[in-house]
């Protein structure tokens, strides 16, 4: 049987981080494979957020895909399999035509090879077109800092009011015990990951559900910095590169919260 997909990653850890960052949002996703690489596009189960992964062919040590194929996987099962891999293991992902499994093989430096066949799903979903967004505010900040802010503020309320203006980027939350905010001002540092940059075309304030932002920020291990983009009455973009820009990116979109 001909191999439809035969891909090899130098470090299994990257794929593991990708799977982990989707785990709390999607149950089953299609990995759409083509000669360009692997792509995932999926709404979260409540249809409030959208996950868009572009795993470029360049991220792989080897990548061969004879014809486009969609591999439907349960994300939870996928993370379980990838837990078997060590940080410096290599990972092979293979799929034979006309079978209902995808094969994962990881090989460590100690010559131990582990292998797992994951049963595939047949997922019928719509392919989404995301219209080009014109963000009024674009901010780039350290991903760990974004994660901490989201986690801290989630303790106080459900909704985050995000403001971008000439003062900086302001995260505001209010809840039963009171209200608070975090203001980030643009800053230059030696290490590029710790830099905060902000482009404001027009001041914007928008409201988002913190719960999802906390889930998005679990992608922090992917990349040292995160890009946020938002505009009035438009989804928020939270984008992480897959380590470097050329390997691809993980984009999360979140619908704004509209009061009923």
């Amino acid at each position: 049987m001909a191999m439809v997909l035969d891909a090899q990653l130098q470090q299994a850890a990257l794929f593991k981080k990708v799977a982990e960052s989707m785990k709390d949002l999607c149950k089953e996703v299609n990995f759409d494979c083509s000669e360009k690489g692997m792509q995932v596009q999926s709404m979260d189960s409540s249809h409030v957020a959208l996950v868009s992964l572009n795993f470029r062919e360049a991220a792989f040590a080897e990548f061969k895909c004879d014809r486009p194929v969609s591999l439907g996987m349960n994300v939870d099962s996928l993370t379980k399999i990838l837990k078997m891999t060590g940080p410096s293991d290599t990972l092979k992902i293979r799929h034979k035509g006309d079978t209902d499994v995808v094969n994962f093989q990881c090989e460590g430096s100690d010559d131990r090879i582990s292998e797992f066949d994951l049963k595939l799903f047949q997922i019928e979903n719509e392919h989404m077109e995301i219209p080009e967004q014109h963000y009024k505010v674009v901010a780039k900040l350290p991903s760990s800092e974004f994660q901490k802010i989201c986690r801290d503020l989630k303790e106080f309320g459900e909704t985050l009011h995000l403001t971008g203006d000439k003062d900086g980027l302001k995260f505001v939350v209010s809840g039963d015990i009171g209200s608070g905010n975090v203001l980030l001002k643009p800053r230059e540092t030696e290490k590029p990951e710790e830099k905060v940059s902000l482009t404001v075309h027009e001041p914007v304030t928008a409201a988002f559900a913190l719960r999802y932002l906390v889930n998005f920020s679990k992608a922090s291990p992917l990349c040292g910095s995160v890009t946020l983009g938002f505009a009035p009455d438009a989804p928020l973009l939270v984008q992480y590169d897959l380590e470097t820009e050329d390997k691809g990116h993980m984009k999360f979109y979140l619908a704004p919260k509209i009061d009923e």
Binding site: H47, V48, N74, L120, Q122, I123, E124, M128, P131, A255
Partner: peptide
């Protein structure tokens, strides 16, 4: 789990912003 899953698209949430 090896069965078919159908994911519908809704008009609410992100559905408003995508085609």
């Amino acid at each position: 789990t090896s069965q078919k899953v159908v994911v519908s698209t809704s008009k609410g949430g992100m559905g408003k912003f995508v085609k």
